[in-house]
């Protein structure tokens, strides 16, 4: 063994001591459960059951044929497909408008950010009341505009879209703050150089400076928004419980039901592995984005 300095020995010792609790937590809370999860997914384990059988990939095969799971996947993707572009471009649009304000900037920033910090369960309850067909203020407003009576949360065609709007309501302020940070990081001199170079129209400034300079922010916002939208759960529990007619059954809600209401642990584990695959795909995308960001600096 090569001789090491006292400093190196001290670092090695203290490094190990400092890292030990975190490492222990990673092992018990993250790695061990993951291993158990994958193992569970090839069994028919049910909580409290006396016997456990290995069933190979039967759970995964069952997932493929399970209409409820497929409906929840379809609902989740529909939800993401609506929330994602609206939250990204809406957040960008609001940020662009707010960034140009001087005196009123803080006011708008705070108002748009309110839903992010508020307790979603509580606010979903408020939304439920607001959208109540007879007691809430939305229905009379809607009817004043000359439309017929609607019940957004109990109409199978509208319920998922309503949840998506509430999801968007909660997410847009978060994205706005991220974009505002990105906008503040663009050097003013770039806009001045562009002005001297002849960028006289707003589209020129946006396409040559703003949009490319926001590239890393946009990708980051896209990935975080996708993950957030993917995990839609609270509003389903509070507002629809998957109904009406399964129109708002989402991946996490089904997972919750299978695992913790019906206690079909093996089946739920297989479902979780599928969720994990989606999330892994997203994080690979994000890692690529971070690489590209290094390229810029």
């Amino acid at each position: 063994m090569r001789p090491r300095s006292p400093q190196a020995r001290s670092e090695a010792r203290w490094g190990a001591i400092f890292a030990a609790p975190a490492l222990l937590l990673i092992l018990t809370i993250l790695l061990a459960p993951l291993a158990v999860l994958v193992a569970l997914s090839v069994t028919d384990y049910r909580l409290g059951a006396i016997t456990v059988r290995l069933v190979g990939l039967d759970n995964y095969a069952a997932l493929l044929g399970d209409p409820v799971f497929q409906r929840s996947l379809r609902n989740t993707f529909l939800y993401v497909a609506f929330v994602l572009p609206a939250a990204v471009f809406g957040g960008l649009g609001v940020a662009l408008l707010v960034h140009a304000r001087i005196r009123t900037r803080t006011v708008y920033e705070v108002i748009y950010f309110l839903p992010v910090t508020s307790t979603l369960v509580a606010m979903a309850t408020v939304w439920q009341f607001m959208l109540h067909p007879t007691l809430g203020p939305v229905t009379p407003l809607w009817m004043n505009l000359g439309f017929g009576r609607i019940d957004l949360l109990n109409d199978p065609d509208l319920a998922l879209g309503t949840l998506a709007l509430i999801g968007l309501w909660q997410l847009i302020g978060f994205n706005m703050v991220l974009f505002l940070a990105g906008l503040s990081a663009i050097p003013r001199e770039l806009y001045e150089a562009a002005a001297l170079d002849g960028a006289r129209h707003a589209p020129d400034r946006f396409l040559r400076v703003t949009w490319p300079m926001l590239g890393p922010t946009t990708m980051f916002v896209t990935v975080t928004s996708t993950v957030t939208a993917f995990k839609v759960f609270d509003t389903v529990v509070v507002l629809t419980r998957g109904g009406p007619l399964g129109a708002t059954e989402t991946l996490l809600y089904i997972l919750y039901l299978e695992g913790f209401q019906y206690f079909r642990m093996g089946y739920a584990a297989a479902m979780t592995v599928v969720l994990l695959v989606f999330l892994a795909g997203l994080s690979i995308l994000q890692a690529r984005v971070i690489e590209r960001k290094v390229h810029y600096a």
Binding site: E189, L190, E192, A193, L196, R208, M213, A297
Partner: peptide, 13 residues
């Protein structure tokens, strides 16, 4: 007129 900025203000992308 053309201007050279202190930070050069090159378009990084």
């Amino acid at each position: 007129v053309a201007m050279v900025f202190q930070s050069y203000a090159l378009y990084p992308h």
